[in-house]
Nucleic acid binder design. Structure first.
Length: 577
DNA sequence: GCCGTTTTCGGCCCGACTGTTTTCAGTCG
């Protein structure tokens, strides 16, 4: 799949054009193409073969010709020409907070700055401060931006950012001038990783609120602070933006600061079509506000249904409002069980019975115990003999604890050749089988894809666990041919996991949507190694919602009897083919 | 560069904060 490469190229072209000072509408259209391709839930190469590239939003004649050029020759001439015009180290400077394209171009042309090291030199020897339009303060801001850029490893997982955002929101609520508080931005959209935290409050005394906020214990540096807006760095190393608006604007502001940017632009376009103006203060007809206090009013007045924050990515949600195909998203209550967890038998820290009781307390009807198999030696994986004893142990626990069904399952390793770590006759003894890759994740796309496809030929494989193996911020996802994997899953009725640990969230949103479209069931499971881990299910549910999942798309929204029926149905089907 | 029942040319989302300015450019979200 060339989507990622093409998306990167168009994004890079936008960066280069920006440094070269080109028309920003043109730059924006490159950025849009970059985003549309990276969000695309199908192979861009297939659209190209069908001759339907121009059905993509924002892709016109020129862009289609460039995609065509890339898919034929492996490069784009216009891209190469831009690269030749700008020093290689320059685009990275765009990532430095406080430094924009105009200043970068000036430093390059007047001081011959071509990379971060050059920039640091001209800051130290005072030459940067000597440029027109720059002064000592601005230069200090850029120096701080460089320091932050060098220590920040990029985006923060939601699982780290959300608890911090919630704590800050709570603290804001204790300020007497604050009326309402909400978390906005990518945290509210439940993106798997976030670049910063956006908080919104309503209140009349903006200055007081901003003053109190910038004095919070976790604030290590104040980047800016006015009467309605402040940006700070936290000691935890990421940025928090706070906005204060009046009550009558709260809904408009919440909508605006929740984003995404692309969704907002689409909303504003709709407002313009209706001769209205939309900004963070409200929806206006001339000078008169026609909506603004709540989000429902904004969407309603624009003639749209309310769009859940997880869907606000300009990935077709606005069009779906129009033709009534907006999904009724999965809810927490829809989850009836958890099909992936480890006890002390392999590498978990809790007994089967404790996990079962904790799951029951969370309202579940069933759990599946999935210890590792013998190849995962480091995780004390079970050999066939131990597994058979473990099955007996599960049966005894199941008989003992009433009100919840405990299924005997396993997380079986998919070996290098695609075979499974247990023989079929052992697998047949299990109620449910999840198969996962735990080694050789860096192999070529072709190799890992074949490995998974081979494993999926085994009639006992019910679920593919954490399919791409990614660990956010630590390990890249395997470069699978997701179209082939999903179509094989659809053909054999195999479910795919959405591993809910916040560091995995694997499959991710756009792949979930591909799976849904292919009719593949998703198992949203925690991979719990302790009782607390069971609570990670919320991250899976949110990510599922970002993938447009409804209750029916989710395997573990079934009752236990429907689940077991599904297993025998699909195994029968697997054996036939 | 894209796009079109107001358009094939002339638009393209909108506002806050900062610093270096004497009224605004640059950056950010």
């Amino acid at each position: 799949m060339k989507n990622r490469e093409l998306s990167n190229i168009f994004g890079q072209m936008a960066d280069l054009l920006e440094i070269l000072g080109q028309d920003h509408f043109r730059i924006n259209s490159y950025r849009r193409v970059s985003r549309v391709i990276s969000d695309l839930p199908e192979d861009v190469e297939r659209l190209w073969k069908q001759g339907s590239l121009d059905t993509l939003a924002g892709v016109g004649k020129n862009t289609a010709a460039r995609i065509d050029e890339y898919l034929r020759s492996g490069k784009i001439g216009a891209h190469q020409e831009l690269i030749d015009q700008v020093p290689r180290g320059l685009p990275e400077l765009l990532d430095i907070s406080g430094l924009g394209p105009k200043t970068i171009a000036k430093a390059w042309q007047e001081l011959d700055v071509t990379c971060i090291e050059d920039l640091q030199k001209v800051i130290e020897d005072g030459r940067l401060a000597g440029l027109s339009g720059l002064g000592e303060k601005k230069v200090q801001q850029i120096a701080r931006g460089i320091a932050f850029h060098q220590r920040a490893a990029g985006r923060t997982p939601l699982g780290i950012a959300l608890p911090i955002a919630q704590k800050l929101a709570e603290q804001l609520g204790e300020i007497s001038d604050v009326d309402q508080v909400r978390i906005a931005g990518s945290v509210r959209r439940r993106c798997d990783t976030v670049g910063d935290v956006d908080l919104l409050v309503s209140g009349e005394q903006g200055k007081n609120i901003i003053d109190a906020f910038t004095k919070f214990d976790d604030v290590s540096e104040i980047l800016s602070a006015g009467t309605t807006k402040a940006s700070v760095l936290l000691s935890q190393g990421f940025q928090v933006d706070l906005r204060v608006v009046r009550k009558k604007s709260f809904g408009a502001a919440l909508c605006y600061f929740t984003g995404s940017k692309a969704h907002n632009i689409a909303l504003r376009g709709m407002a313009v079509d209706k001769k209205l103006k939309l900004n963070e203060y409200g929806l206006f007809k001339g000078d008169r506000a026609v909506a603004g206090a709540d989000e429902e009013g904004i969407y309603g007045t624009l003639g749209l249904s309310y769009v859940e924050p997880e869907l606000r990515e300009d990935r077709g949600e606005i069009e779906a409002c129009g033709d009534g195909t907006l999904p009724k998203l999965l809810e927490t209550e829809d989850i009836r069980g958890d099909l992936h967890m480890h006890s002390t038998a392999s590498d978990g820290s809790t007994s089967i019975e404790e996990l079962a009781r904790a799951a029951k307390a969370r309202g579940y009807q069933y759990i599946a115990m999935t210890e590792h198999s013998s190849s995962s030696a480091i995780a004390h994986g079970l050999n066939a003999e131990r597994l058979l004893k473990q099955i007996e142990k599960v049966r005894r626990a199941d008989a003992k604890i009433k009100g919840i069904k405990i299924l005997a399952s396993a997380e079986v390793d998919i070996l290098a050749d695609g075979s499974l770590d247990y023989p079929d006759k052992i697998l047949a003894r299990l109620d449910l089988v999840t198969a996962s890759v735990h080694s050789g994740l860096a192999s070529s796309a072709q190799k890992v894809t074949e490995r998974l496809l081979r494993a999926m030929e085994n009639p006992y494989v019910d679920i593919i666990g954490h399919p791409t193996g990614r660990l956010l911020g630590k390990r890249e996802a395997m470069d699978l041919d997701m179209e082939r994997i999903i179509s094989a899953a659809a053909k054999r009725g195999i479910a795919m996991e959405l591993n809910s640990h916040w560091a995995r969230l694997d499959l991710k949103d756009i792949h979930l949507r591909m799976a849904k479209q292919a009719g593949v069931k998703i198992a949203i499971c925690t991979d719990a190694h302790s009782i607390e881990d069971l609570d990670n299910i919320c991250y899976g549910i949110w990510t599922g919602r970002r993938g447009w999942l409804e209750a029916d798309d989710v395997l573990n929204s079934k009752t236990v009897s429907a689940l077991l029926k599904w297993v025998s149905w699909r195994r029968g089907r697997g054996k036939k083919s």
